[in-house]
């Protein structure tokens, strides 16, 4: 028999209405209120405890509320954590999101809640928590709780889940490949989509264009007073590749001194080369400065066009490298740039 814990607000935890919204967190053995329903829907699993907290208390004392509740859970055995459903109630949605996220991070168990699409908690927490698409009001309690239990049962049994749309939760921004159960080949899917598009019938793209994060252009700087750093995704590394940066799908980056160096020596001189597998390496191996233009930048430094060059350059490989990995590596590199008061970066590819 597996064990689950449920979070409810003051109303569904039967403490009281709006006048009890400041109710401090408490934990109760067994099931309270809607917990009885959830308990009856779970397979081979018991809701052993119910946590109750007032929506206002969570809203105005979040840190205290979360600490208190995590303290309640410390040392308790449980395999899954539920919260809500929160319907369209904004404060309750926020509370369910906050506590689910905190429990997931601390205890690593699956966490499930449910909200109506217009609940602001959806956008706040859908990337962190499985939030099922719920109804607007408590009239949907049975339906929403059933959905929560069904997804919970899958996690508890270790079944593979079938994606956001099929399971009924809000997409979390995670795109993964699947094999289609009906095995319709891409050629047929393409023709069907084309015919619908031609005939102005509705169709669903398999790759919805995501909202793009655009980076505003940085304000201009005074070049003559600027310290410039060089970064490349073109795979220029010391011969021997000391950090073993991968030639494609890179997860590693390197930081190499160019202090006092006029230009990068080449592979034949035993100095620098490229380990990037996505372009013809011969020119860069003969003269790595064409990928990482240290020679040109030193000339600018001598002419006084720029003040100085940061003593290290940074390198990774861009081919096949996922955007998420690139963003992580950038954040790690930025720490070094900030520490040395770098004003601007020249980022070169291949």
């Amino acid at each position: 028999m597996k064990k689950g814990i449920l979070y409810l607000n003051q109303f569904f935890g039967q403490i009281g209405g709006e006048d009890k919204a400041d109710y401090e967190p408490s934990i109760h053995e067994g099931q309270v209120g809607a917990g009885l329903l959830l308990n009856s829907l779970l397979e081979d699993t018991e809701i052993t405890h119910t946590v109750i907290c007032g929506d206002n208390f969570m809203g105005s004392n979040e840190a205290v509320a979360v600490d208190t509740i995590l303290g309640f859970l410390e040392g308790k055995e449980f395999d899954i954590f539920f919260a809500g459903p929160a319907f369209q109630a904004g404060r309750y949605g926020n509370a369910c999101g906050v506590i689910c996220k905190a429990v997931k991070e601390k205890f690593g168990v699956p966490v499930i809640t449910s909200m109506h699409p217009e609940n602001p908690g959806v956008d706040m927490f859908k990337k962190d928590v499985y939030i099922l698409r719920g109804g607007p009001s408590a009239a949907n309690m049975k339906k929403d709780m059933t959905q929560m239990a069904e997804l919970g049962n899958k996690f508890l049994k270790g079944e593979k889940i079938k994606g956001a749309e099929t399971e009924g939760y809000y997409p979390r921004g995670i795109r993964l490949e699947i094999f289609l159960e009906d095995e319709t080949p891409a050629s047929k899917r393409a023709i069907n989509m084309l015919l619908k598009k031609i005939n102005n019938e509705p169709f669903v793209s398999e790759l919805p264009i995501p909202e793009l994060e655009t980076v505003p252009i940085a304000p201009a700087i005074e070049l003559a007073n600027a310290k410039i750093a060089l970064i490349t995704s073109g795979g220029i590394v010391p011969v021997g590749n000391p950090d073993k940066i991968q030639s494609s799908s890179a997860t590693r980056w390197g930081r190499y001194s160019i202090a006092g160096m006029k230009r990068l020596g080449n592979e034949a001189e035993g100095a620098f080369k490229t380990i990037h597998a996505g372009y013809d390496p011969s020119a860069a191996n003969a003269d790595p400065n064409i990928t990482l233009p240290l020679d040109a930048l030193r000339a600018y430094e001598e002419e006084g066009k720029i003040k100085s060059i940061h003593d290290y350059y940074y390198a990774t490989v861009g081919t096949g490298t996922a955007e998420g990995e690139a963003a992580r590596m950038a954040l790690e590199i930025i720490e070094y740039l900030k520490a040395d008061d770098v004003d601007a970066v020249i980022l070169t590819s291949t």
């Binding site: 749309e165 995670i174 490949e177 891409a186 050629s187 790759l207």
Partner: peptide, 14 residues
Amino acid sequence: DSTLGQSIKTVIEF
């Protein structure tokens, strides 16, 4: 990934 049309795979949101 057979993008000439054999692929029975797709990518979905999880």
